[in-house]
Design a protein around this nucleic acid. Structure first.
Lengths: 108, 108
DNA sequence: TTAACATATTGACATCCTTCGATATGAGGG
DNA sequence: CCCTCATATCGAAGGATGTCAATATGTTAA
């Protein structure tokens, strides 16, 4: 429901950027530098509204930066946002060797 | 359709591990060390079949390692898989400063 | 072998996500 | 002020995902 989505963690939003084939293609296109939406549209096999939807997700995740220039919007990889995502991934998957570790073998 | 899922990139599978609140909770629980499924089940507010479903996704993404011990299954963060995911994220978001960069401003 | 327990799988249902076509918004040029 | 172009938003359709209850599988102990 609506409420559930609002309560969803920001973290899931970040990683959803990488969970769709079309978005991965977009990221790969942006690896060679900033690109206009119309250029991305020409390279991809999706409709214009679909591209707009994906760009919104990418921008809101912080992975991509949007720069408006007149009628055009130029997109580029956001290095700061990407670094944040990397740190987030690392912290999620790092084992905390806490001093107060206990009950390790107490299963069931 | 079925075909579409089969053709989906392995990359999306990896990052889907981080795209659900319950799975993030599981990862956080595993940060303090290996844990039995029954322990995870006690800590989370989901049914047993749901937990099993999430553990399968986490294991198949490479982020979590499963160790079978009699009736019990112990899960832990897979450091190698996590490192792979981090590298994947980095490579997806790194700008390639290619020597043959060109047509930078050629929009539309 | 049977019973009890831990985990996995199945089927059903609701929600979420991707996609499209149609339309709205917004900017520039004539 | 209109017209055109670039992008965004809306509404609908279908596919993917998360969840549960029920059941299956597999392991240990009696």
């Amino acid at each position: 429901m609506l409420q559930a989505q609002l309560l969803q963690r920001k973290t899931t939003k970040v990683f959803k950027a990488f969970c769709d084939d079309t978005r991965l293609e977009i990221l790969e296109l942006l690896q060679s530098g900033e690109k206009c939406a119309c250029v991305l549209l020409a390279e991809l096999e999706v409709g214009q509204s679909t591209l707009s939807h994906h760009m919104k997700i990418l921008v809101e995740s912080g992975i991509v930066h949007a720069r408006r220039d007149g009628k055009w919007t130029h997109y580029s990889l956001d290095q700061a946002g990407s670094e944040d995502a990397t740190q987030l991934l690392k912290s999620l998957t790092t084992i905390k060797t806490a001093a107060d570790k206990k009950y390790e073998e107490g299963c069931c």
